[in-house]
Design a binder for these strands. Structure first.
Length: 421
RNA sequence: CGGGGCGUGGCGCAGUUUGGCUAGCGCGCCUGCUUUGGGAGCAGGAAGUCCCCGGUUCGAAUCCGGGCGCCCCGACCA
Protein backbone atom coordinates (compact mmCIF):
# COMPACT_ATOMS: atom_id res chain seq x y z
CA UNK A 1 0.00 0.00 0.00
CA UNK A 2 1.25 3.48 -0.90
CA UNK A 3 1.79 5.73 2.05
CA UNK A 4 1.75 9.16 0.51
CA UNK A 5 0.84 11.90 2.90
CA UNK A 6 -0.97 13.89 0.23
CA UNK A 7 -3.62 11.25 -0.17
CA UNK A 8 -4.15 10.49 3.47
CA UNK A 9 -6.89 11.75 5.71
CA UNK A 10 -4.92 13.37 8.50
CA UNK A 11 -6.70 16.61 9.38
CA UNK A 12 -4.21 18.31 11.68
CA UNK A 13 -5.11 21.44 13.59
CA UNK A 14 -2.92 24.42 14.17
CA UNK A 15 -4.67 25.55 17.30
CA UNK A 16 -5.84 23.86 20.44
CA UNK A 17 -9.53 23.04 20.34
CA UNK A 18 -11.18 24.60 23.37
CA UNK A 19 -12.98 21.36 24.20
CA UNK A 20 -9.73 19.71 25.20
CA UNK A 21 -7.79 20.46 28.31
CA UNK A 22 -5.43 17.59 28.98
CA UNK A 23 -2.45 17.03 26.74
CA UNK A 24 -3.28 13.69 25.21
CA UNK A 25 -6.77 14.85 24.30
CA UNK A 26 -5.46 18.06 22.75
CA UNK A 27 -2.71 16.35 20.82
CA UNK A 28 -4.92 13.54 19.55
CA UNK A 29 -7.37 16.10 18.21
CA UNK A 30 -4.63 18.28 16.77
CA UNK A 31 -2.79 15.37 15.17
CA UNK A 32 -6.00 14.32 13.45
CA UNK A 33 -6.19 11.00 15.30
CA UNK A 34 -9.67 11.31 16.76
CA UNK A 35 -12.82 13.39 16.51
CA UNK A 36 -15.64 13.64 19.01
CA UNK A 37 -19.15 12.54 18.18
CA UNK A 38 -20.63 13.11 21.66
CA UNK A 39 -19.35 13.17 25.23
CA UNK A 40 -17.17 10.11 25.71
CA UNK A 41 -17.81 8.88 22.18
CA UNK A 42 -15.08 9.25 19.59
CA UNK A 43 -14.25 8.35 16.03
CA UNK A 44 -10.78 7.08 15.29
CA UNK A 45 -9.45 8.62 12.11
CA UNK A 46 -6.87 6.67 10.08
CA UNK A 47 -3.87 7.85 12.10
CA UNK A 48 -5.49 7.13 15.47
CA UNK A 49 -6.74 3.82 14.22
CA UNK A 50 -3.28 2.87 13.03
CA UNK A 51 -1.82 3.43 16.50
CA UNK A 52 -4.70 1.55 18.08
CA UNK A 53 -3.98 -1.39 15.80
CA UNK A 54 -0.30 -1.36 16.66
CA UNK A 55 -1.10 -1.56 20.35
CA UNK A 56 -3.65 -4.26 19.63
CA UNK A 57 -1.09 -6.30 17.73
CA UNK A 58 1.46 -6.10 20.52
CA UNK A 59 -1.14 -7.35 22.95
CA UNK A 60 -2.31 -10.06 20.57
CA UNK A 61 1.13 -11.47 19.96
CA UNK A 62 1.94 -11.51 23.68
CA UNK A 63 -1.37 -13.13 24.55
CA UNK A 64 -0.88 -15.74 21.87
CA UNK A 65 2.64 -16.44 23.11
CA UNK A 66 1.17 -17.05 26.55
CA UNK A 67 -1.07 -19.68 25.01
CA UNK A 68 -4.26 -17.66 25.14
CA UNK A 69 -6.76 -18.04 22.30
CA UNK A 70 -8.58 -15.18 20.63
CA UNK A 71 -12.33 -15.23 20.10
CA UNK A 72 -15.10 -12.69 19.72
CA UNK A 73 -18.11 -12.47 22.02
CA UNK A 74 -21.33 -10.54 21.39
CA UNK A 75 -21.89 -6.94 22.41
CA UNK A 76 -25.61 -7.43 23.09
CA UNK A 77 -26.20 -9.31 26.32
CA UNK A 78 -29.62 -10.75 27.14
CA UNK A 79 -30.96 -9.52 30.46
CA UNK A 80 -31.52 -12.96 31.95
CA UNK A 81 -27.81 -13.81 31.97
CA UNK A 82 -27.00 -10.74 33.99
CA UNK A 83 -29.90 -11.48 36.30
CA UNK A 84 -28.41 -14.88 37.03
CA UNK A 85 -25.38 -13.19 38.59
CA UNK A 86 -27.39 -10.38 40.10
CA UNK A 87 -25.40 -7.81 38.22
CA UNK A 88 -28.31 -6.54 36.09
CA UNK A 89 -29.19 -4.40 39.08
CA UNK A 90 -25.80 -4.28 40.71
CA UNK A 91 -24.16 -2.78 37.65
CA UNK A 92 -27.07 -0.39 37.51
CA UNK A 93 -26.98 2.80 35.54
CA UNK A 94 -23.51 2.14 34.29
CA UNK A 95 -24.87 -0.43 31.87
CA UNK A 96 -26.45 0.92 28.72
CA UNK A 97 -29.62 -0.95 27.91
CA UNK A 98 -31.64 -1.41 24.76
CA UNK A 99 -34.94 -3.01 23.76
CA UNK A 100 -35.50 -5.12 20.68
CA UNK A 101 -38.73 -5.06 18.64
CA UNK A 102 -40.32 -7.58 20.95
CA UNK A 103 -39.46 -5.38 23.89
CA UNK A 104 -36.86 -7.85 25.10
CA UNK A 105 -34.12 -6.21 27.10
CA UNK A 106 -30.42 -6.31 26.35
CA UNK A 107 -27.42 -4.70 27.93
CA UNK A 108 -24.52 -3.37 25.87
CA UNK A 109 -21.58 -5.35 27.24
CA UNK A 110 -19.51 -3.41 29.78
CA UNK A 111 -17.50 -6.56 30.61
CA UNK A 112 -17.98 -10.22 29.72
CA UNK A 113 -17.79 -12.54 32.71
CA UNK A 114 -21.43 -13.59 32.28
CA UNK A 115 -21.04 -14.32 28.59
CA UNK A 116 -17.79 -16.25 28.76
CA UNK A 117 -18.95 -18.25 31.80
CA UNK A 118 -22.17 -19.13 30.00
CA UNK A 119 -20.10 -20.35 27.06
CA UNK A 120 -17.88 -22.39 29.37
CA UNK A 121 -20.76 -24.08 31.16
CA UNK A 122 -22.24 -25.14 27.83
CA UNK A 123 -19.06 -26.33 26.18
CA UNK A 124 -16.45 -27.31 28.76
CA UNK A 125 -17.50 -30.55 30.30
CA UNK A 126 -14.29 -32.16 31.46
CA UNK A 127 -11.15 -31.32 33.40
CA UNK A 128 -9.35 -32.65 30.34
CA UNK A 129 -10.32 -29.44 28.47
CA UNK A 130 -8.59 -27.30 31.10
CA UNK A 131 -6.72 -25.05 31.60
CA UNK A 132 -7.89 -22.51 29.08
CA UNK A 133 -7.38 -18.80 28.51
CA UNK A 134 -9.70 -17.06 26.09
CA UNK A 135 -9.54 -13.43 25.10
CA UNK A 136 -10.98 -10.87 22.76
CA UNK A 137 -10.69 -7.30 21.57
CA UNK A 138 -14.00 -5.62 21.75
CA UNK A 139 -15.75 -2.32 22.10
CA UNK A 140 -17.11 -2.00 25.61
CA UNK A 141 -19.95 0.25 26.67
CA UNK A 142 -20.08 1.91 30.04
CA UNK A 143 -22.34 4.79 30.87
CA UNK A 144 -19.70 6.50 32.96
CA UNK A 145 -20.83 9.01 35.52
CA UNK A 146 -18.53 11.52 33.96
CA UNK A 147 -16.74 10.67 30.75
CA UNK A 148 -13.70 12.87 30.35
CA UNK A 149 -10.22 13.52 29.01
CA UNK A 150 -11.08 12.52 25.47
CA UNK A 151 -10.28 8.90 24.85
CA UNK A 152 -9.09 8.36 28.43
CA UNK A 153 -12.45 7.73 30.05
CA UNK A 154 -15.04 6.94 27.45
CA UNK A 155 -18.50 5.52 27.28
CA UNK A 156 -17.45 3.44 24.30
CA UNK A 157 -13.87 2.14 24.26
CA UNK A 158 -11.70 -0.68 23.01
CA UNK A 159 -10.74 -3.27 25.58
CA UNK A 160 -8.87 -6.50 25.53
CA UNK A 161 -10.49 -8.85 28.02
CA UNK A 162 -9.23 -12.32 28.84
CA UNK A 163 -10.67 -15.06 31.00
CA UNK A 164 -8.93 -18.09 32.40
CA UNK A 165 -10.53 -21.38 33.40
CA UNK A 166 -8.88 -23.84 35.71
CA UNK A 167 -9.81 -26.92 37.65
CA UNK A 168 -8.41 -25.62 40.93
CA UNK A 169 -6.85 -22.70 42.76
CA UNK A 170 -3.39 -23.90 41.97
CA UNK A 171 -4.11 -23.77 38.27
CA UNK A 172 -5.57 -20.29 38.63
CA UNK A 173 -2.48 -19.09 40.46
CA UNK A 174 -0.38 -20.39 37.60
CA UNK A 175 -2.44 -18.70 34.93
CA UNK A 176 -2.59 -15.53 36.96
CA UNK A 177 1.18 -15.44 37.17
CA UNK A 178 1.38 -16.08 33.47
CA UNK A 179 -0.91 -13.14 32.75
CA UNK A 180 0.94 -11.03 35.26
CA UNK A 181 4.13 -11.62 33.32
CA UNK A 182 2.43 -11.20 29.98
CA UNK A 183 1.07 -7.83 31.05
CA UNK A 184 4.50 -6.72 32.13
CA UNK A 185 5.76 -7.70 28.71
CA UNK A 186 2.95 -5.92 26.93
CA UNK A 187 3.36 -2.58 28.68
CA UNK A 188 7.12 -2.79 28.44
CA UNK A 189 6.92 -3.50 24.74
CA UNK A 190 4.61 -0.54 24.26
CA UNK A 191 7.41 1.57 25.69
CA UNK A 192 5.44 2.64 28.74
CA UNK A 193 6.76 3.46 32.16
CA UNK A 194 4.39 1.78 34.58
CA UNK A 195 3.88 0.46 38.10
CA UNK A 196 2.02 -2.51 39.40
CA UNK A 197 -0.21 -2.02 42.43
CA UNK A 198 -2.44 -4.22 44.49
CA UNK A 199 -6.04 -3.35 43.91
CA UNK A 200 -9.57 -3.64 45.14
CA UNK A 201 -11.52 -6.10 42.98
CA UNK A 202 -14.65 -3.89 43.16
CA UNK A 203 -17.69 -4.83 41.10
CA UNK A 204 -15.90 -7.54 39.15
CA UNK A 205 -15.27 -9.47 42.35
CA UNK A 206 -12.81 -12.11 43.43
CA UNK A 207 -9.92 -11.94 45.84
CA UNK A 208 -6.49 -11.14 44.48
CA UNK A 209 -6.24 -8.29 42.01
CA UNK A 210 -3.54 -6.07 40.53
CA UNK A 211 -3.64 -2.90 38.52
CA UNK A 212 -1.11 -1.65 36.01
CA UNK A 213 -0.56 2.08 36.23
CA UNK A 214 1.12 4.17 33.58
CA UNK A 215 2.95 7.00 35.30
CA UNK A 216 1.84 10.46 34.23
CA UNK A 217 1.13 13.71 36.03
CA UNK A 218 -2.40 13.81 34.68
CA UNK A 219 -3.24 10.34 36.01
CA UNK A 220 -6.50 10.04 37.90
CA UNK A 221 -5.00 7.80 40.54
CA UNK A 222 -2.60 8.91 43.24
CA UNK A 223 0.11 6.39 44.06
CA UNK A 224 2.80 6.01 46.65
CA UNK A 225 5.94 4.46 45.22
CA UNK A 226 8.98 3.28 47.05
CA UNK A 227 12.08 5.24 46.16
CA UNK A 228 14.30 2.22 46.70
CA UNK A 229 12.49 -0.76 45.22
CA UNK A 230 9.65 -1.00 42.70
CA UNK A 231 6.87 -1.37 45.25
CA UNK A 232 3.86 0.90 44.78
CA UNK A 233 0.49 1.24 46.38
CA UNK A 234 -2.67 3.27 45.80
CA UNK A 235 -2.68 6.30 48.03
CA UNK A 236 -6.35 6.02 48.85
CA UNK A 237 -6.21 2.33 49.72
CA UNK A 238 -6.82 1.66 53.39
CA UNK A 239 -3.45 1.33 54.97
CA UNK A 240 -1.28 3.23 57.40
CA UNK A 241 2.01 2.73 55.70
CA UNK A 242 4.64 5.38 56.15
CA UNK A 243 7.38 3.42 54.45
CA UNK A 244 7.72 0.55 52.02
CA UNK A 245 6.75 -2.78 53.66
CA UNK A 246 9.26 -4.59 51.47
CA UNK A 247 12.45 -2.64 51.96
CA UNK A 248 11.50 0.17 54.37
CA UNK A 249 12.34 2.72 51.69
CA UNK A 250 10.64 6.11 51.67
CA UNK A 251 7.50 6.70 49.65
CA UNK A 252 7.14 9.29 46.95
CA UNK A 253 3.77 10.44 45.68
CA UNK A 254 3.11 10.11 41.96
CA UNK A 255 0.11 9.82 39.69
CA UNK A 256 -0.91 6.97 37.45
CA UNK A 257 -3.35 6.01 34.71
CA UNK A 258 -4.90 2.59 35.07
CA UNK A 259 -4.37 0.70 31.82
CA UNK A 260 -4.68 -2.88 32.98
CA UNK A 261 -6.36 -4.82 35.73
CA UNK A 262 -6.11 -8.51 36.51
CA UNK A 263 -8.31 -10.46 38.92
CA UNK A 264 -8.42 -13.87 40.53
CA UNK A 265 -12.15 -14.41 40.40
CA UNK A 266 -12.18 -17.87 41.90
CA UNK A 267 -15.60 -19.45 41.58
CA UNK A 268 -17.68 -16.30 41.92
CA UNK A 269 -19.19 -16.53 38.44
CA UNK A 270 -19.08 -20.26 38.02
CA UNK A 271 -21.01 -20.65 41.28
CA UNK A 272 -23.63 -18.10 40.37
CA UNK A 273 -24.04 -19.44 36.85
CA UNK A 274 -23.62 -23.09 37.86
CA UNK A 275 -20.75 -23.52 35.47
CA UNK A 276 -19.30 -26.91 36.30
CA UNK A 277 -17.09 -29.55 34.78
CA UNK A 278 -16.42 -33.14 35.75
CA UNK A 279 -13.16 -33.60 37.66
CA UNK A 280 -10.91 -36.66 37.77
CA UNK A 281 -13.26 -38.28 40.27
CA UNK A 282 -16.35 -37.68 38.18
CA UNK A 283 -17.50 -34.92 40.49
CA UNK A 284 -19.27 -31.72 39.34
CA UNK A 285 -16.83 -28.90 40.09
CA UNK A 286 -17.09 -25.15 39.42
CA UNK A 287 -14.48 -23.54 37.19
CA UNK A 288 -11.84 -21.55 38.97
CA UNK A 289 -11.60 -18.36 36.97
CA UNK A 290 -9.49 -15.30 36.45
CA UNK A 291 -10.07 -12.25 34.31
CA UNK A 292 -7.61 -9.85 32.77
CA UNK A 293 -8.39 -6.51 31.16
CA UNK A 294 -6.44 -3.92 29.21
CA UNK A 295 -7.77 -0.58 28.06
CA UNK A 296 -6.40 -0.62 24.54
CA UNK A 297 -7.61 2.83 23.59
CA UNK A 298 -6.55 4.18 26.96
CA UNK A 299 -2.99 2.97 26.37
CA UNK A 300 -2.82 5.29 23.38
CA UNK A 301 -3.82 8.30 25.47
CA UNK A 302 -1.56 7.25 28.35
CA UNK A 303 1.42 6.90 26.01
CA UNK A 304 0.93 10.48 24.87
CA UNK A 305 0.53 11.78 28.42
CA UNK A 306 3.82 10.16 29.19
CA UNK A 307 5.74 11.24 26.14
CA UNK A 308 5.28 14.63 24.47
CA UNK A 309 6.76 18.10 24.29
CA UNK A 310 5.60 21.56 23.26
CA UNK A 311 5.65 20.58 19.60
CA UNK A 312 3.55 17.46 19.90
CA UNK A 313 3.59 13.73 20.49
CA UNK A 314 6.80 11.72 20.86
CA UNK A 315 5.87 8.13 20.05
CA UNK A 316 7.86 5.18 21.21
CA UNK A 317 8.79 3.25 18.10
CA UNK A 318 6.60 0.14 18.66
CA UNK A 319 3.33 2.07 18.70
CA UNK A 320 4.18 4.98 16.41
CA UNK A 321 1.71 5.47 13.54
CA UNK A 322 4.69 5.46 11.18
CA UNK A 323 8.29 4.58 11.93
CA UNK A 324 9.83 6.91 9.40
CA UNK A 325 8.72 10.02 7.54
CA UNK A 326 10.53 11.26 4.47
CA UNK A 327 10.26 14.99 4.10
CA UNK A 328 11.17 16.47 0.73
CA UNK A 329 11.69 20.18 1.25
CA UNK A 330 10.15 21.08 -2.08
CA UNK A 331 8.06 18.88 -4.33
CA UNK A 332 8.85 21.21 -7.23
CA UNK A 333 12.47 20.08 -7.20
CA UNK A 334 12.87 16.99 -9.37
CA UNK A 335 16.15 15.88 -7.81
CA UNK A 336 14.73 16.05 -4.32
CA UNK A 337 11.65 14.14 -5.36
CA UNK A 338 13.70 11.49 -7.13
CA UNK A 339 15.90 10.87 -4.09
CA UNK A 340 12.87 10.91 -1.78
CA UNK A 341 10.94 8.51 -3.95
CA UNK A 342 13.83 6.08 -4.21
CA UNK A 343 14.48 6.18 -0.49
CA UNK A 344 10.80 5.59 0.12
CA UNK A 345 10.79 2.54 -2.11
CA UNK A 346 13.91 1.08 -0.53
CA UNK A 347 12.65 1.49 3.02
CA UNK A 348 9.27 0.13 2.02
CA UNK A 349 10.96 -2.89 0.53
CA UNK A 350 12.71 -3.50 3.85
CA UNK A 351 9.31 -3.71 5.50
CA UNK A 352 9.69 -0.38 7.23
CA UNK A 353 6.56 1.57 8.05
CA UNK A 354 7.43 4.69 6.11
CA UNK A 355 5.41 7.61 4.81
CA UNK A 356 6.41 10.14 2.19
CA UNK A 357 5.24 13.69 2.82
CA UNK A 358 4.63 14.59 -0.79
CA UNK A 359 2.26 17.42 0.02
CA UNK A 360 2.68 20.69 -1.78
CA UNK A 361 3.21 22.57 1.43
CA UNK A 362 5.94 24.77 2.75
CA UNK A 363 8.73 23.00 4.55
CA UNK A 364 7.74 24.67 7.81
CA UNK A 365 4.24 23.23 7.62
CA UNK A 366 5.62 19.75 7.11
CA UNK A 367 8.11 20.07 9.93
CA UNK A 368 5.39 21.20 12.29
CA UNK A 369 3.08 18.38 11.31
CA UNK A 370 5.78 15.74 11.62
CA UNK A 371 6.60 16.95 15.11
CA UNK A 372 2.93 17.18 16.06
CA UNK A 373 2.16 13.68 14.83
CA UNK A 374 5.34 12.52 16.51
CA UNK A 375 6.96 10.25 13.92
CA UNK A 376 10.14 8.87 15.56
CA UNK A 377 12.48 9.16 12.57
CA UNK A 378 12.41 12.02 10.09
CA UNK A 379 14.49 12.05 6.95
CA UNK A 380 14.74 15.48 5.37
CA UNK A 381 15.70 15.70 1.73
CA UNK A 382 16.76 19.24 0.91
CA UNK A 383 18.70 21.22 -1.64
CA UNK A 384 21.68 21.87 0.60
CA UNK A 385 22.37 18.33 1.70
CA UNK A 386 21.47 16.63 -1.53
CA UNK A 387 24.38 18.28 -3.32
CA UNK A 388 26.75 16.43 -1.02
CA UNK A 389 24.78 13.24 -1.58
CA UNK A 390 23.45 13.49 1.95
CA UNK A 391 20.11 13.56 3.66
CA UNK A 392 19.40 14.75 7.16
CA UNK A 393 18.13 12.36 9.79
CA UNK A 394 16.44 13.58 12.93
CA UNK A 395 14.96 11.60 15.77
CA UNK A 396 11.82 13.11 17.21
CA UNK A 397 13.09 12.61 20.75
CA UNK A 398 16.42 14.31 20.06
CA UNK A 399 17.10 17.95 19.54
CA UNK A 400 19.74 17.72 16.87
CA UNK A 401 19.88 16.06 13.51
CA UNK A 402 22.77 14.49 11.65
CA UNK A 403 23.76 13.97 8.04
CA UNK A 404 23.91 10.61 6.35
CA UNK A 405 24.99 9.48 2.89
CA UNK A 406 21.95 8.77 0.76
CA UNK A 407 23.27 5.34 -0.15
CA UNK A 408 23.86 4.49 3.53
CA UNK A 409 20.50 5.74 4.70
CA UNK A 410 18.46 2.53 4.48
CA UNK A 411 21.13 0.74 6.49
CA UNK A 412 21.31 3.51 9.03
CA UNK A 413 17.52 3.56 9.41
CA UNK A 414 17.45 -0.18 9.95
CA UNK A 415 20.06 0.17 12.63
CA UNK A 416 18.14 2.98 14.33
CA UNK A 417 14.95 0.95 14.23
CA UNK A 418 16.68 -1.98 15.80
CA UNK A 419 17.81 0.17 18.70
CA UNK A 420 14.47 1.84 19.16
CA UNK A 421 12.28 -1.23 19.38
C1' C B 1 -26.41 14.31 40.54
C1' G B 2 -23.93 18.94 43.32
C1' G B 3 -20.33 23.13 42.12
C1' G B 4 -17.81 26.16 38.20
C1' G B 5 -17.27 27.59 32.95
C1' C B 6 -18.61 27.72 27.82
C1' G B 7 -21.97 27.58 23.17
C1' U B 8 -21.14 33.19 17.11
C1' G B 9 -18.73 29.94 9.09
C1' G B 10 -14.23 23.91 9.61
C1' C B 11 -10.76 25.75 13.97
C1' G B 12 -9.46 29.85 17.54
C1' C B 13 -11.87 34.17 19.07
C1' A B 14 -14.24 39.58 19.27
C1' G B 15 -19.02 41.65 19.65
C1' U B 16 -23.44 40.59 24.62
C1' U B 17 -22.35 44.80 30.30
C1' U B 18 -25.35 49.82 27.74
C1' G B 19 -30.61 46.07 22.06
C1' G B 20 -29.89 49.54 16.32
C1' C B 21 -28.29 49.71 10.22
C1' U B 22 -24.98 44.74 5.76
C1' A B 23 -22.44 39.96 12.22
C1' G B 24 -16.61 40.94 12.37
C1' C B 25 -11.20 39.33 12.93
C1' G B 26 -7.16 35.56 12.57
C1' C B 27 -6.27 30.66 10.80
C1' G B 28 -8.09 27.02 7.43
C1' C B 29 -10.68 26.11 2.51
C1' C B 30 -11.25 27.36 -3.24
C1' U B 31 -8.89 30.22 -7.87
C1' G B 32 -4.62 32.73 -9.87
C1' C B 33 0.33 34.65 -9.58
C1' U B 34 4.77 34.98 -6.63
C1' U B 35 7.33 32.19 -2.88
C1' U B 36 9.76 27.51 -0.86
C1' G B 37 14.86 24.62 5.43
C1' G B 38 10.34 25.68 10.90
C1' G B 39 2.81 26.87 10.27
C1' A B 40 4.60 32.41 3.42
C1' G B 41 3.00 37.22 0.28
C1' C B 42 -0.54 39.63 -2.95
C1' A B 43 -5.31 39.57 -5.44
C1' G B 44 -10.04 37.44 -5.86
C1' G B 45 -13.75 33.92 -3.77
C1' A B 46 -17.00 30.20 -1.08
C1' A B 47 -18.86 29.27 3.54
C1' G B 48 -23.27 31.56 9.29
C1' U B 49 -30.41 28.50 11.67
C1' C B 50 -25.11 33.85 16.28
C1' C B 51 -27.12 25.99 20.30
C1' C B 52 -32.79 25.36 20.32
C1' C B 53 -37.90 26.94 21.67
C1' G B 54 -40.81 30.74 23.52
C1' G B 55 -41.34 35.86 25.29
C1' U B 56 -40.36 41.40 25.56
C1' U B 57 -39.57 45.20 21.68
C1' C B 58 -40.57 49.22 15.98
C1' G B 59 -36.03 46.24 16.21
C1' A B 60 -32.66 40.66 19.70
C1' A B 61 -26.17 37.35 18.88
C1' U B 62 -27.25 41.11 22.82
C1' C B 63 -32.81 41.58 27.54
C1' C B 64 -36.34 37.70 30.10
C1' G B 65 -38.14 32.37 30.72
C1' G B 66 -37.47 27.31 29.59
C1' G B 67 -34.68 23.49 27.33
C1' C B 68 -30.32 21.07 24.98
C1' G B 69 -25.15 20.31 24.24
C1' C B 70 -19.90 20.51 25.62
C1' C B 71 -15.68 21.16 29.15
C1' C B 72 -13.61 21.25 34.24
C1' C B 73 -13.81 19.77 40.00
C1' G B 74 -16.20 15.23 43.18
C1' A B 75 -18.32 9.63 43.53
C1' C B 76 -17.07 5.46 39.11
C1' C B 77 -13.26 2.69 35.93
C1' A B 78 -9.75 -0.34 31.54
Amino acid sequence: MQMLFSGMFIPTLKENPQEAEIISHRLMLRAGMIRKLAAGIYSYLPLGFKVLKKVENIIRSQMNSAGAQELLLPTLHPRHLWEETGRWNEYGKEMLKVLDRHKREFGLGPTHEEIITDLARREIKSYRQLPLILYQFQTKFRDEIRPRFGIMRCREFLMKDAYSFDKDAEGLAKNYDKMYETYNNIFTQCGLEFKLVEADPGLIGGSVSHEYMVLADTGEEELLTCQKCDYAIKAKAEHNLTSCPKCKGKFASIRGIEVGHIFQLGTKYSDLLKANFLDENGKQTPFVMGCYGIGVSRIVAAAIEQSHDDDGIIWQMPIAPFEVLILPISIADDKIMKVSGELYKKLKKEGIDVVLDDRDEQAGVKFKDTDLIGIPIRITVGTKTIKENNVEIKLRKDKNSFKEKISETPCKVKELLKNMK
